[in-house]
Design a protein around this nucleic acid. Structure first.
Lengths: 210, 210
DNA sequence: GCCCGACCTGACCAATCGGTCAAGATAAAT
DNA sequence: ATTTATCTTGACCGATTGGTCAGGTCGGGC
């Protein structure tokens, strides 16, 4: 992969191999789930001997945990997009766009997250109860403010958030089904149209348009 | 389980045991995925010896296939709810209500379906390309009719369907996350409110309300 | 040039997996 | 009552799994 055989510094070796393993693990966990994934498969995909994986990650659970945590961080960064503006059209619109972009850029990560939650969130239960719950309550308060200011209709803020999560992540988690119905992977234009459709229906649905 | 030890007819034995195994399998496959599920675990949950499972279902794949097909049939029956009326509010509203009811009644089935699609639909790929694709195209034509008649705004019908699937199934597939944020399982009233919120936002989003 | 600690890996292991099978138990046809 | 086909099950098997380990390689401080 690298040009020639340049000598690598110790820290570079560690960073490079951990990243390589995490990337391969994300793909394999997304394709096969935790139980269906094997360390041998991840090793083959990373181009490393299996024993080398156990040098960097003690157990399969440790590796899985790191993959899930990485996704959660990407999730949280995008969540800040909702605070860019004071009006709901710009704020919620930017959040939907950010989440759609993540669904396209990190479909495997989204699937591993879905897998983890679907199976009772054994690894990230504490994150759900702390970070995610706090973030959700803050956004609910923000949406209630928009309702009180008459900027949107008095819909249920909590279920609006669930609908945003559901619709945007659907394009990653169910990407195979969508691609099958579309007779092929979504193009740039397809993604633009999908994002526009989701934004339009949700924003009009809460009375922020027209 | 049965009162006393009443003698069972041959056909009864077969039906009863197959149903018992399928029910246990649905739960285990939903909780652990295909790879994470074991025949021993399913056997224990069904209260039967493992060898007995292989008498009724030759392989683990056969058992999994039957579980996925069962869910697909439930899915299709509910899809007919969309054709109950000529106006979009009643038709789409009934479809959303039917799908929300399924999410509540068959959360494990929904999860197994999600698992199957997330992993490339190796078992039900042909259903996606035939039955589901035909059904989707028919409903798109129907929605386009409503648009042409001026009953709803000119939204993208395909993405409206995706949004309905995503939001309704989210309450099953991500039920654990929702329950955690809700500090407990959803009550009857919670489900009623969730269904109303989804219906209201989606129907207003396509311009069928107000 | 030497040495130490980080890095690498083929070979190996106990545990568990899906699946098999032969022998016994039971319901129904004769 | 005997036969027959269905149902039941403990014991077993080869294959694969996550994980270990001893012995090697190699970068970098001295």
């Amino acid at each position: 992969m690298n040009e020639a055989a340049r000598p690598l510094k110790r820290t570079e070796i560690r960073q490079q191999n951990e990243a390589l393993i995490l990337k391969a693990a994300e793909k394999v966990f997304a394709e096969a789930g935790f139980g269906g994934a094997t360390m041998q498969l991840i090793a083959d995909m990373a181009g490393l001997p299996k024993a080398n994986l156990h040098y960097y990650f003690a157990t399969k659970e440790d590796l899985y945990r790191r993959v899930v945590q990485n996704i959660f961080e990407i999730w949280l960064e995008a969540a800040e997009a909702m605070d860019v503006a004071d009006d709901p059209v710009t704020g919620i619109g930017a959040y939907i766009e950010a989440k759609m972009a993540i669904s396209r850029a990190h479909p495997d990560g989204s699937k591993v997250w879905a897998y983890e939650v679907m199976h009772g969130a054994p690894v990230i239960q504490d994150y759900l109860e702390t970070t995610l719950r706090d973030w959700t309550n803050d956004r609910i308060a923000r949406i209630e403010g928009w309702i009180a200011a008459g900027k949107i209709k008095p819909i249920a803020p909590r279920h609006l958030l669930y609908m945003i999560w559901a619709t945007t992540q659907h394009y990653a988690d169910f990407g195979h089904q969508i691609a099958t119905l579309n007779r092929g992977p979504l193009s740039d234009e397809d993604w633009r149209r999908a994002t526009a459709a989701v934004k339009e229906i949700l924003l009009r649905g809460i009375g922020a348009l027209d």
